[in-house]
Simulated assay, not measured.
Amino acid sequence: MVGFSNIFEPTLKTSYRPGVRIAGDRSVTAVLAINDAMALGVMKALDDRGISIPGDVSVVGFDDRDESAYFQPALTTVRLDFTEVGRRAVDSVLRALRGEPSGTIPLIQPELRVRDSTGRPLKH
């Protein structure tokens, strides 16, 4: 039986194989991964095949895990305040349960944390 987290949780292992395919396609110059763990799996696959990060391929994650700044190279990532996202969502649900108008949930601005895994691509 496959557990819920095994189906939906992107991991290093599940991103390594796509990273291998990306390494074989010299037209790819950048990858945006669904989260930092996936980005790390792609980075490992690229590195194992001699692809320079960011010289040949830039890699960007999404979620700004604490360890992302310590990857080699340090991972450029998008930070979103997930605690605030959750708080606003719960507030909206509670208002709806009380029969109050929920209104529009204000957007939360993501922040790009530029680090060493991105750069201008080399000419191919």
Rank of each mutant, 00 (worst) to 15 (best):
D64C: 06
G99W: 02
G3L: 05
D81H: 05
V93E: 12
S52Y: 09
M1Q: 09
S117I: 05
V59R: 01
S5E: 12
F62N: 14
L46P: 03
P73D: 11
L40A: 13
E67H: 03
G119A: 04
T118P: 01
R65M: 13
G19K: 00
L80C: 09
L94H: 00
P18C: 13
D66V: 11
I51V: 15
V60G: 00
H124Y: 03
V85D: 01
V93H: 07
A39T: 14
S5A: 14
D36R: 00
P10F: 02
G99M: 02
S68K: 04
I34P: 00
P73H: 02
G86Y: 04
V31S: 02
P18E: 04
R87V: 02
I51N: 02
I7N: 03
D36T: 06
L107F: 14
G19E: 06
S102D: 07
K44E: 15
S92P: 02
I53K: 00
G86I: 09
E100T: 03
M38A: 15
G3Y: 04
L75T: 01
D48E: 12
D66H: 07
G24K: 12
T11E: 06
D64F: 13
S52C: 08
R120F: 14
N35F: 15
Y16N: 09
D66K: 08
N35R: 07
L32S: 05
P121D: 10
F8C: 13
L122S: 09
V57Y: 03
R115K: 12
P106R: 09
A39S: 05
H124N: 14
R115I: 09
M43S: 10
L122C: 08
P10A: 10
M1P: 07
V20W: 08
T118V: 10
R17Q: 08
Q72L: 10
L112M: 11
R17M: 09
Y16K: 12
E67L: 09
R98V: 04
L94A: 06
